[in-house]
């Protein structure tokens, strides 16, 4: 890839752009500082027992009664922290334990199962979501770090029942097979298309997309889809 990267006009900036999302001075972006702040607070609150000791899922799909959902009128259960996640434009107030991972909270508590778990340790990209406009692996991020954050998942890509241009391009180019990595591929693709630091040539897109594994190997069609969607995003 490096041979083609050399031709990039913004070669000198290489590496800065994609890291921007994790610079710690950006309060809204996922950051190490936010992480320490939120975990620290929770650890103090739950000094004696493991913090995850007494809570079930507050709004487990279908079966948990509504009254168990976090409610502004009640204090959060001991060992939990109340957070608000703005997911796909909708605010959700949730009580979460400090070991709850953003991916699991999306899937288990908010029933947003479009975001997939492929490895749970940040290696495959299937769980990619946008937090405050920056793409992250949601399996590597604790839910408590995201109080007040804007999260976009695959369910929030399309608007008004219409496919997002990246979804349309994936459909037209058959940029998937089993479809399991696809939500993550598309979330990364949208982030890349909106990132001026990622050049538009094929080699740059391939390099930037390499955190998203497609074991079916539909890479050729994914690239075609991204380059087609570029014109419409």
């Amino acid at each position: 890839m490096a041979d083609k990267d050399d031709k990039r006009p913004d070669h000198d900036d290489q590496g800065k752009g994609r890291a921007r999302g994790v610079e710690i001075h950006d309060a809204r972006a996922p950051s190490r500082r936010n992480f320490l702040k939120s975990v620290g607070a929770t650890s103090l609150a739950a000094a004696t027992a493991p913090a995850w000791a007494r809570v079930g899922y507050v709004n487990h799909d279908e079966q948990e009664p509504q009254d168990k959902r976090a409610d502004e009128g009640e204090a959060p259960a001991k060992g939990t922290q109340r957070i608000t996640l703005n997911v796909n434009g909708q605010a959700h107030t949730l009580d979460v334990t400090p070991n709850m991972v953003l991916l699991d909270v999306l899937r288990h508590q908010l029933a947003l199962t479009g975001t997939k778990k492929g490895c749970d340790i940040g290696q495959c990209g299937a769980c990619t979501v946008h937090v405050n406009g920056v793409s992250i692996n949601s399996c590597l991020s604790l839910a408590v770090m995201h109080d007040g954050d804007e999260v976009t998942t695959v369910e929030g890509l399309g608007q008004n029942g219409k496919l997002h241009p990246i979804q349309q391009a994936f459909l037209d180019h058959d940029a998937y097979q089993c479809g399991y990595c696809t939500p993550g591929q598309m979330m990364s693709a949208v982030a890349i298309l909106n990132d001026a630091e990622v050049a538009s040539d094929d080699a740059a897109v391939r390099e930037a997309m390499s955190g998203n594994i497609c074991r079916c190997g539909a890479y050729k069609n994914i690239l075609s889809a991204i380059q087609t969607a570029r014109k419409n995003v």
Binding site: H60, H108, A111, L112, T113, V154, E155, G179, T182, P183
Partner: peptide
């Protein structure tokens, strides 16, 4: 089944949660 896969609606095994 493309739209289901592309909008996150296709139900893979672990996407099911039973009462």
């Amino acid at each position: 089944d493309g739209e289901l896969k592309l909008t996150g609606k296709a139900d893979y095994t672990s996407d099911h949660n039973l009462p």
